[in-house]
């Protein structure tokens, strides 16, 4: 039993990454109707950003946790202004291809500089070792990652429900035309929201650096699962993406325990089942894509 609880805990930690990535993807999709394929690449850049700051400037993990997401959010905004926004009036496929192309370019740029290898990145000294969680010992860093992911998701939730900006974003997500006709300038929020979503991906990347391989392909390996998470949660549903992120994380951990051979496909089986039962995903609405 303890074992199962510990596995569920493992799943929550893995789910934290999925939730942060899915959240950013959901916010961007909600506001722009853009499926951002480059999300995984920015997750990867987040990890490499932390590595670069450490090796080139001696900047530690904690500072990197602030600096890297902020810097990449700015890059994201520039990207939105320069490219993404020119294609939003066209078929979604164009932006899908654009962001896919950006992913390939970013991955290859990193490969040119660092080769197709993992780079070393250590845990912050403060979080070395493990903590006693009552039932079992658990690595401190992973406990931190889980706590951080949960707090961050809650903060975003508060931001969206309790502030004026959040209200506008939600309104624009649900009824863009109506919001516009009420005199709200939806357009000016598009770029910051894109940057914010990218920043979340970068943040997940920085968090991943000490516990996962800092590798040019780390994002593309993960992004497919994140897409499945977003679809299960319901396209454009912010709440759904977070719940599905943690849920899928736990499902994978338990799947690994009982049917390891199936765990890779488990998320897609779940996706198929959810779509059969609720074609809009767990928390999605009808007509998001029309």
């Amino acid at each position: 039993m303890v074992n199962v609880i510990q596995q569920l805990f493992n799943g929550l930690v893995g789910g934290g990454f999925l939730a942060l990535l899915a959240l950013g993807l959901a916010v961007i999709f909600g506001m722009l109707r853009v499926v951002n394929f480059a999300h995984g690449a920015f997750y990867m850049l987040g990890a490499f950003g932390a590595y670069l700051l450490l090796t080139e400037a001696g900047v530690n993990f904690w500072l990197a946790l602030l600096v890297v997401p902020a810097a990449l959010a700015v890059v994201g905004m520039a990207l939105e202004r320069a490219f993404v926004h020119r294609l939003t009036q066209l078929d979604p496929l164009y932006n899908f291809l654009l962001t896919f192309g950006i992913t390939l370019i970013l991955q290859d740029l990193i490969k040119v500089r660092y080769g197709n290898q993992s780079q070393p990145y250590s845990r912050p000294a403060l979080l070395d070792g493990s903590v006693n969680l009552g039932l079992f010992q658990y690595p401190s860093y992973q406990v931190f990652v889980l706590g951080f992911a949960i707090v961050l998701c809650l903060l975003v939730w508060l931001l969206l429900t309790r502030t004026r900006v959040g209200m506008i974003v939600r309104a624009a997500t649900e009824r863009p035309e109506l919001t516009r006709s009420l005199g709200v300038d939806v357009g000016r929020w598009v770029t910051p929201v894109f940057g914010f979503g990218i920043g979340l991906a970068a943040l997940a990347g920085v968090l991943a650096a000490p516990m996962r391989a800092v590798h040019p392909m780390m994002g593309s390996d993960l992004i497919i699962t994140v897409f499945a998470v977003v679809v299960i949660g319901g396209l454009g549903s912010i709440f759904g993406s977070v719940v599905a992120g943690f849920g899928i994380g736990m499902a994978q951990a338990v799947g690994n325990l009982y049917v390891p051979a199936l765990s890779q496909t488990l998320v897609f089986i779940l996706m198929a089942v959810v779509l059969l039962w609720r074609p809009t995903g767990l928390f999605g609405r009808e007509g998001v894509l029309t």
């Binding site: 996962r212 392909m217 390996d221």
Partner: peptide, 12 residues
């Protein structure tokens, strides 16, 4: 145990 490939979470 077979594990997914690629995989970033081996904690299980």
């Amino acid at each position: 145990d077979p594990t997914p490939f690629p995989n970033d979470n081996f904690s299980t």
